[in-house]
Structure formats: C-alpha cells, structure tokens
C-alpha cells in the first residue's frame, strides 16, 4: 500500500558555517493493507523524521514515497490534497496539534469543514460517530484541550485522524508519554479500529515490549538506517544493536553504560554506524554494511 524507496533526509543549519546532519539515510520500506508495522529505535535515530516523510509533512532530501502506486513526493499541493486524508499522523504530544482555544468538538469537525460538501447536521453526526468510536462520551465535546487528561486528548487526536477515512495511520510515539494503563487503553482502541476498518498501522516507539505486543512486523532503526527487519526479531535478534536494546529492556548487563559522547564516528567513515559501541566489532565492520537476507529476515550486519 505505502512504499518508500531509498529515503534520505539531511538537516542543515547555519548560514555561514553550514552544519549538516543526516537524520535518515537510505530507508526502504513497504507497508501492506491491514498490517501493523512497528519501527523501534532510541531517541534521535530518525524515527520521527521518517514518520514525517511518510505522511508528506517533510520533503525528503532524496528518495521517493509511493501510495498505492502513485508517487507522492514532488507532487504539487493541489493534487496531494487527495492523498493526505488517506495517510494520517498521530503525534507524540497531543497538546502540540490541538488548538488550545478551540473546543475538541471543533477540532474534530475541522477536517470535514476543510473538505467541504457536508451540511452542519451531517458534520455533527459524523463527529458524534467518531467520538463514540474512540470511546469518548458527549460530555467531552464542548471541552477545551486543557480540561482533558492525556489519554482523553490522545483519543481526540485519533478521532480527528479517522475523520477522513484514512487507510494508513502513522503513530509517532503515540503512547510513550502515557501511563501503562492508559497506554494499554489507547493501543486497544487503535487495534479495535484497525480490525473494524482494515487500516494499516505504523507504530513508532522506543518501547520494545509495546512493539512486540502490537505489531506483525518490526523494523529496528539505528542512526537513520534500518538495521534489522523481520517478524520474530525479538525472539531471535540477529543484529548486535537489537540485542543491546533487548538487554536494556530486561535490565540485563547493567554494568555497561553506553556513553552518548563516545558515539561520534570519524568524518567520512562509511562502515557500520554501530561500530564504536558494538562489542563484537572486527576490522571487517569498517566496510559499508548492506541489508542481507537471512532466512526471511533483513539484517545489516555481515556476521549474521
């Protein structure tokens, strides 16, 4: 359904002394209808940048995104309008996307108003249906964002994302700021909507256990690259980075503290980005690593 080819994103800052930072480099991915894909990785590995490029909020530096065969990148805004409703982003912090001066009812009704063609009664009916779908009651409708709890706000954002009948939802850390019980509730809401509407779901998270509980397929990202992809990644991790992540979740090997300052690689280093931190590194790791197919799993490590 959604296909991304060789996506790159480079952020530049500074006018005189330009600093370039590569956030995403060379990501290929494909999402099939009705499938849940989890993208996991630590903060700063380019997950959110990737999410923004998938929903066309950010133009990639190079690379292409296709939706059901149509190329979205580089499309002009008028034509893109038909597709933005089909792919919706649910952000990490619902406060960032809801207007604090609007009632949540108005925020949820906005997509219908923008698209036009509906009478006021029809809009109100649709909004009621959406509120019911995400488990909010009518008493929440006239409230303002500051009057709702984090879990309720996240449900409002989901309701708004569902308004234009999307075929793909991209959840960017949608549950990581919430408590476990609320998190479980939001995931249950998303899953229910998915089975009812047959949506594709991209679940971006740093919580591996949540990813495992939710997804059909997992992609592990490190330093802007996909280092491992497959169905049973967590039961049989092949890349050293995936193993390190799993150890961290289980609080195994507490003595090794990864220092973020030691990660910087020398300029022009083309080898494995995980080189400095990998405990199993050899000279061969200085060569560029390619994604290799290992019994139905893609791994970016020559050792696997």
């Amino acid at each position: 359904m959604l296909k991304a080819e060789n996506l790159h994103c480079v952020y530049t800052s500074g006018l005189i002394k330009t600093v370039k930072k590569t956030a995403v480099c060379g990501v290929d991915l494909e999402i099939f209808p009705g499938e849940t894909v989890a993208i996991v990785g630590e903060s700063g590995c380019g997950k959110s940048t990737l999410a923004k490029m998938l929903v066309q909020q950010l133009a990639p530096t190079s690379g292409e995104v296709f939706f059901e065969g149509t190329k979205l990148t580089g499309m002009n805004w008028n034509n893109l309008g038909k597709f933005v409703g089909k792919i919706q982003l649910i952000p990490q912090n619902p406060d960032d996307v809801l207007d604090p001066r609007w009632t949540v009812e108005r925020s949820v009704a906005e997509p219908f108003v923008v698209c036009g063609g509906l009478s006021r009664e029809e809009i109100s009916e649709n909004v009621d249906a959406l509120f019911a779908e995400v488990g909010l009651s009518a008493e929440h409708k006239p409230r303002y964002p500051h009057e709702l709890s984090g879990g309720e706000l996240q449900r409002v954002v989901i309701a708004r994302a569902l308004a234009l009948k999307p075929e793909l939802l991209v959840c960017d850390e949608a549950t990581s700021m919430l408590d476990v019980s609320v998190q479980a509730f939001i995931v249950a809401v998303l899953k229910e909507i998915q089975t009812k509407r047959g949506l594709g779901l991209v679940f971006i998270t740093h919580d591996l256990e949540a990813a495992k509980a939710v997804s059909d397929r997992v992609l592990v990202m490190y330093a802007g690259e996909i280092v491992e992809e497959g169905k049973d990644v967590f039961d049989r991790p092949l890349h050293p980075y995936t193993r390190a992540l799993l150890d961290a979740v289980r609080y195994a090997s507490l003595d090794v503290v990864l220092q973020e300052e030691d990660r910087a690689l020398p300029d022009g280093f083309l080898g494995c980005p995980y080189f400095r931190l990998c405990r199993e590194r050899t000279v061969a790791c200085k060569e560029p690593q390619k994604l290799r197919d290992v019994s139905g799993r893609l791994v970016r490590c020559w050792k696997s």
Partner: peptide, 18 residues
Amino acid sequence: ALLDAVPERGMHPIPGSS
C-alpha cells in the same frame, strides 16, 4: 489490573476511567 496492562502481559486495559 495494573500488571495486566503492562505490554509484557498483553496490554489489557483497565475498564473505566480514573
């Protein structure tokens, strides 16, 4: 209920709201 809501135990939400 809280422990059942943890991802390792299957993320079962607690019914009702706080």
